[in-house]
Every structure is written in structure tokens, then in C-alpha cells.
Amino acid sequence: MHNVNNRSRDIGEFVPAEDDELLICRCEEITKGEIRRAIHDGMFTLTEIRRYLRTGMGLCQGQTCGKLVKEIAARELGLVLSELGNASSRVPMRPIEMKVFGNEKEPGENA
């Protein structure tokens, strides 16, 4: 596990690949190449990649791409999946409009 958070470790140069154009996050339209590049920019955890690129932060909330991003990151970082861990899980589990989430009332509506 010590390896995961070692920021100074060398993961080598970014090497362009044939399938870099492949779309991975369907909602935010992020490609495999962008994800791999983000890792070489120093985003070593799924949470960081998510904040940097918005992978898994679109409407579906990572339902579709979560596992794919994890696999790409693990491979790029030379880790096995279980070492990498998952991105944090937060409320709400599904996208909800802020109006609903905050139980906002229309003017004049009883609280």
C-alpha cells in the first residue's frame, strides 16, 4: 500500500497510444488519452483524477465509467486494482436537483 501515495515515484513518460481517442467517460466526454495524461500530470488517485478531469462527475455519477477509469489508472500506475482503492462515495448516491435535495419550498408554500 505504501506505493500508492508515494508522489515522487517514477511512472515513466507519457507514451501516446493508438486508442487514446477512445471515449471512456460518456457523460463528460473524457478520453482514455486524457485520463492517462492526467496520471502523468500527477493525479495518482481516482479522487484526484475525478476532480481534475470530471470523469464520473456527470449525470450518471460514474455508474458506467467508474470501473473503466480504475482499470486504466491501475495499469498506468503499475498497481493492481485493489491497491488503488475506489473514489469516495458521497451523498447523494444519484443525481438530484439541488432544489429537491435541499427540500426547497416555493414562495408561499408551507414549510
Binding site: 451523498v91 447523494p92 438530484i96 429537491v100 427540500n103
Partner: peptide, 20 residues
């Protein structure tokens, strides 16, 4: 009814129609 969160002390928030 979408369970949006599971919290300490076994409390949950559920979205039912347009309210939590």
C-alpha cells in the same frame, strides 16, 4: 424511492417524488 444516503445510527435519506 431512491435511497440517496446511508448515515451513522442507521439513518437514511430517500428521494420520493420531489422531496427528500
Amino acid at each position: 424511492a431512491t435511497v440517496a444516503g446511508l448515515f451513522q445510527d442507521k439513518e437514511i435519506t430517500v428521494r420520493i417524488k420531489d422531496s427528500i
